[in-house]
Design a binder for these strands. Structure first.
Lengths: 269, 269
DNA sequence: AACAAAATGGAATTTATATTCCAGACCGTT
DNA sequence: AACGGTCTGGAATATAAATTCCATTTTGTT
């Protein structure tokens, strides 16, 4: 009855998972992916919960367990319950542990960046200004077309926004300045500009904003401080301060605001 | 029916435990002691197992749970199971609700996304694999040139990497596929490919990786799951699982790994 | 387009587990 | 030692979960 190879350790389990997942039908692959990403949940969940998480029927999850070499879910769960010795350390313990590795391994760096990101996010919650945000959303929701601008370190954010708007069926263009063809004249009255820019502000972005304001096009600017020269230009500012680690800026908080804007505008349309 | 004070956190649970254990009959005291010494087992054990461990009958253990303020063992267990998985709420269903109450302030949305980002980051600490990471760093550090590829939702990450490498003076090219000029032949032996791709994988990226592997160029792939078809291609996988709601993915964890890679490679060069 | 094989969803069944109940044991008091 | 109360063990019951089964759908092949 019992398959020749039922994994006996977490390591064997992972290997087997990778091995079988190369050729697996849709639903079973969903199971494999969910399990891979949530191994720790197996010990404390029911089949029904795991199945729901993976987006499949319990019976499908059951079949997955059997393909993995177990007689059923219970047997698979037993493996994880047993290897659950003393639980996993909590966030801070884990952080310290990784930090110790500092020089030897890149894992030490991960700890620092995770911490910087987390601090940025928490800080964001404290400092976000709901009125400003709502005002920005309503400006963008009214626009017939949103022109997104952000270069250098802001470019990832700008492209993220472009992707999110597209997914939400909000008309938007990413001005990527390819070939230095600044499609400035694509901006028409009734449109709005969404600029992402951190100090030092790139000239292109500042000029783009200036040109838009000169024609009374509304501009929302995602930036890093409220005391910004951008204010002079008459842009609606949304400021986010990120916690840096070394010379590097985690974009966690900025992306958070970005996706919020996108979703809020998308649902309001 | 429910006692006025049922502990809601592990801390409250401990306090309550100490409080009641001052005056407790023999068997119930055994329960209290066993529980205090084996808190972590509650999440993964049955009443029968806990009772046996404490050296009492299941019914006695049941009574203990009730004295602690829970309706029964199941309710007490829920507390520990939930705190174990570290609250990774079901965002998929939450988004559905989000759309319904669309009109509300965007500030509420921010909180949701901050929470998603935070969960992603904490989960990253749990699942990061230092060996894999170091292996990836050493592959990239050896490369004469790093070719970065990532489209659609992965493009923000790819462009972030390009920026970071540039700042660290690491030779790198972002393959942005402008004009569909896939500069595939720019990849030379001695170089390496760094691909960022999440399911569903874009054809261009998969092809790019395939072409590189066919010429024995090492490939590091930043992806969302360990059970990926990319493994077949012989790429070195680094997997990051993000809290994801449909089209809306917080990229916090992915960017964290990205910047780590960039800085680690930069300092190793 | 027709067919066979594989995969899937949902309900039915089985099994495990939690929970309740109560008769009897124990304990402190008079 | 007799009485009230509390505590305890074990079996009986209720509940929830795992597992199986099969009709239906999907997929791949000719």
């Amino acid at each position: 009855m019992s398959e020749p190879q039922a994994p006996g350790t977490a390591k064997e389990f992972e290997d087997k998972l990778i091995e079988i997942s190369l050729a697996l039908p849709k639903r079973l692959r969903q199971c494999a992916q969910y399990v891979a990403a949530n191994q720790d949940r197996i010990a404390v969940s029911t089949v029904a919960e795991m199945a729901e998480g993976a987006g499949v029927q319990p019976s499908a999850f059951m079949r997955f367990c059997q393909i993995m070499g177990f007689s059923g879910f219970s047997e698979m769960q037993r493996l994880f319950r047993e290897s659950y010795v003393g639980g996993w350390p909590d966030y801070t313990t884990r952080l310290d542990h990784l930090r110790e590795k500092g020089g030897e391994s890149a894992a030490g760096l991960v700890a620092e960046f995770v911490e910087a990101g987390r601090a940025s996010l928490e800080n964001l919650l404290k400092t976000v200004n709901p009125q400003e945000l709502d005002a920005a959303v309503s400006i963008l929701a009214k626009a017939e077309m949103i022109h997104i601008m952000g270069l250098r370190r802001s470019f990832p954010v700008a492209s993220y926004l472009a992707y999110a708007f597209e997914k939400m069926n909000v008309p938007a263009i990413l001005h990527d300045t390819v070939g230095k063809l600044d499609n400035r004249n694509a901006v028409r009255s009734g449109d709005a500009v969404l600029a992402v820019t951190f100090s030092p502000y790139s000239d292109e972005t500042v000029e783009f904003i200036t040109a838009a304001r000169a024609r009374d096009i509304p501009v929302v600017a995602l930036t890093d401080t409220t005391v910004s020269q951008l204010r002079k230009l008459g842009a609606m500012l949304i400021s986010v301060s990120e916690v840096d680690f070394g010379a590097f800026r985690s974009l966690s908080a900025t992306l958070c605001i970005a996706i919020t804007l996108a979703v809020a505008v998308g649902t309001k349309k």
